[in-house]
Design a protein around this nucleic acid. Structure first.
Length: 285
DNA sequence: CGCATTTCCTGGTAGC
DNA sequence: TGCTACCAGGAAATGC
């Protein structure tokens, strides 16, 4: 989305701001954008960051169902347009933020001041940047006792991994989502590090994953959904071993994994009260 | 502080 | 068909 927005928005002035949602922590100080020019369109994790010429910064997070588009959503979808920004320059010159569930954010802050955005302030390294090394990832994981999947979702070890890509990366790396982060063996850390980068790069190349809501700026669907190996496939056969994928909750999030390929590593704490020794024993979650 | 739990919100769907 | 109940989840707020 950053890639699609940059050529459209860079250098345009905000000439009008229309807020159709109740003001609140998710929709704050938007009127301050009025009269400022978008200097660039950047991104940290899942946050879009648009520095403005007056020293402010427009912060956009899509949440679950947010969509930024250059045209008015068709039909009933237009009821859930929360923000319209009128822009200087040629058509299309209106940015629409469509957000049915209001899980998204669209707000203006002083540039770089993220006191009210703690996840952004403490965001881990960009997954595709050189700074995200296996060693840095290993150090971060070693500091947490959380289930590795829950820790990934916290955005601290690496930025931008949400529920879909966490399940996909863990499946690819053959890591059980409940493995305590600090107990991942070095080889698994390296595999997971590589899998995160691969799955995100592949999804970006496919313009993202459209389940039902996500659209690119031009209203197109992303095609990565057809490549998913784990997410949304509970009850279907694992594409590696053929065993049925299982669904459970990890950190209160729906989680799909292969109980055969993704095992709790030896030395990791088994689930409370459970013992496991037989490779053909009960499913290990 | 660190981690777990709850909250926000509405379209879609399962069940009756 | 129409109703109710519940589920989906990113990040913040709250609880411990």
């Amino acid at each position: 989305m950053r890639r699609e927005l940059a050529p459209w928005l860079t250098g345009r002035a905000v000439t009008g701001v229309e807020l159709l949602a109740p003001r609140g922590p998710k929709y704050r100080d938007l009127e301050r954008a009025q009269g400022q020019t978008v200097e660039s369109v950047s991104r940290r994790g899942k946050f879009l960051l648009l520095p403005l010429s007056g020293g402010d910064e427009l912060v956009i997070h899509l949440g679950m169902t947010g969509v930024v588009s250059s045209s008015e959503p068709a039909g009933k979808a237009s009821e859930h347009v929360r923000v319209r920004l009128r822009l200087s320059g040629a058509d299309p010159n209106t940015l629409h933020f469509h957000d049915p569930r209001r899980f998204g954010r669209f707000l203006v802050v002083r540039a770089g001041e993220y006191a009210n955005l703690p996840t952004l302030a403490a965001l881990g390294p960009e997954p595709l940047a050189d700074a995200f090394t296996t060693e840095a990832f290993a150090r971060s994981l070693a500091a947490s006792s959380m289930a590795v999947k829950a820790y990934l979702l916290s955005q601290r070890p690496v930025a931008g991994v949400g529920n879909i890509y966490a399940d996909e990366a863990l499946w690819r790396a053959r890591v059980h989502p409940r493995t305590p982060a600090a107990r991942l063996p070095a080889a698994k850390v390296a595999a997971l590090h590589g899998a995160i980068r691969e799955v995100l790069a592949a999804s970006i190349a496919a313009h993202g994953t459209t389940l039902s809501d996500y659209r690119t700026v031009n209203g197109q669907s992303g095609s990565f959904g057809t490549f998913l190996d784990a997410y949304g496939r509970a009850g279907q056969p694992c594409r590696r071993c053929g065993r049925e994928l299982r669904r459970s909750l990890v950190g209160q999030r729906g989680t799909v994994f292969c109980p055969n390929c993704q095992r709790l590593v030896a030395g990791a704490h088994p689930a409370r009260g459970a013992t496991r020794s037989s490779p053909r024993g009960p499913a290990d979650d």
